[in-house]
């Protein structure tokens, strides 16, 4: 039970991970999370293709226009589909993706409890 609590707390810490960052940091963060459509194994941040260079400019422009990170992702997924995001959105398509590993971990906990004689 203790480990569970610990994990829960750690997740909370993660979800609070939105500290202020200046604009270039935000731009880098966003472009690192975008997959380049030209060289399909790279992030836009890492790529030097024409598409990536322009996309970096677009992201910069959108940040200057005052769009939030989420709004920029929404804008781009509307244009290019969810494929462009490296960080898959949490929706009905990805429930299994996010939860299955955690379920497996909990399953492991049950096996652990059965195997080990906790009473001394």
């Amino acid at each position: 039970m203790k480990t569970l609590k610990l994990i829960f707390i750690i997740f909370l810490i993660f979800s609070l991970n939105y500290l202020k960052a200046n604009e270039t940091d935000l731009q880098n963060k966003i472009t690192k999370n975008l997959r380049c459509l030209i060289c399909q194994g790279q992030s836009v941040y890492d790529s030097d293709s024409d598409f990536a260079i322009s996309l970096k400019l677009v992201v910069k422009k959108k940040i200057n226009d005052g769009l939030s990170e989420k709004e920029i992702y929404d804008f781009l997924t509307e244009k290019y589909g969810e494929w462009i995001l490296y960080d898959p959105k949490f929706n009905k398509n990805t429930y299994i993706l996010w939860f299955l590993p955690l379920l497996i971990f909990l399953g492991g906990a049950i096996v652990f409890k059965k195997l080990i004689n906790i009473k001394k």
């Binding site: 994990i7 997959r35 992030s43 494929w83 995001l85 960080d87 398509n93």
Partner: peptide, 23 residues
């Protein structure tokens, strides 16, 4: 199954692996 295409990249692995790395 649903002919939807998504990418799973570094942020996914970081989120699911790093917290468990601590214990």
């Amino acid at each position: 199954i649903s002919s939807q295409k998504i990418s799973v990249g570094p942020p996914f692995y970081n989120k699911l692996l790093i917290p468990f790395l601590i214990p």
